[in-house]
Design a protein around this nucleic acid. Structure first.
Lengths: 135, 135
DNA sequence: AATTAGATGCAACAATGTTGCAGGAGTGAT
DNA sequence: ATCACTCCTGCAACATTGTTGCATCTAATT
């Protein structure tokens, strides 16, 4: 689906910035930090705008969000249409190059929390060394 | 085990700061951020020293470390003696009060990463609302 | 084309975490 | 006891991520 179509369907104004960011995320298909997204932008916009755009895309359910092992949010839009994305699959992070990857084929286990806590979501990062960095 | 004994066994100098921090972590038994630890200290030391102490305890395998959903490290020393602690159990984080809890009774699933990546560790945070905040 | 709701850019701020360096405390040997 | 040495602590400074408020500009609507 085109970035423009996605934005329209969610009743969000289609601005060049939003279109560009969403296009980058769709193209890469892996969780990207603000920094990575900013580096891919053709025209450098304001830091705050990028943050706000990423947050908006997340809040509207267009992308999902993962916290990496450095404590920074990463945003990811894969082409799959499955909703309720957050918390449904683990992510792999390479400790060498820092790249991240959605493990969409694996689902997260059911976890029971003792004492009657209500579970809203799950978040899993598997870290190690990716094939490229192993060589 | 006493903080002093633990430090001696790991061949680390037993200073008042280290003893105090380790004692706090052992007492609470749940993952604490730098801020929480600092707030519990009887005599306020330097920020950097606290960070360095926490990092040292982690590197020596005395405590383990979890990244919470706000992107800050939390450190935890439970009394159990099992080594290789990092990555062996999930953690629960309350979205309301921010408290965290080790789910030591649950173990993390085996996750296979396609493409021949080497997995070094796993990290899982389950978030929701704790029993206290539900009322 | 005018209006208006909303998007952007700027400045400023807060928090976490790190690095380099000078001085101080503990350890061991003479 | 004294000396030398290791290494712990505190200070200053900095980098990065992320947020907030406000003025200005832009996109969709009439």
């Amino acid at each position: 689906m085109q970035p423009e179509t996605i934005l329209e369907r969610k009743s969000i104004r289609c601005t060049p910035m939003r279109e560009a960011i969403l296009e980058i995320l769709l193209k890469k298909g892996c969780p990207m930090s603000y920094k990575e997204v900013a580096a891919c932008l053709p025209r450098q916009g304001d830091r705050v705008t990028i943050y706000r755009t990423l947050l908006l895309l997340f809040e509207k359910g267009i992308v999902h969000r993962v916290m990496d092992m450095k404590g920074t949010w990463r945003f990811c839009a894969h082409n799959s249409v499955n909703s309720g994305c957050p918390g449904d699959h683990p992510h792999f992070e390479c400790m060498v190059c820092g790249s991240m990857q959605c493990l969409t084929d694996t689902s997260l286990p059911y976890i029971e929390v003792a004492g009657g806590a209500v579970v809203k979501g799950k978040h899993m990062v598997v870290y190690g060394v990716c094939p490229r960095c192993l060589e």
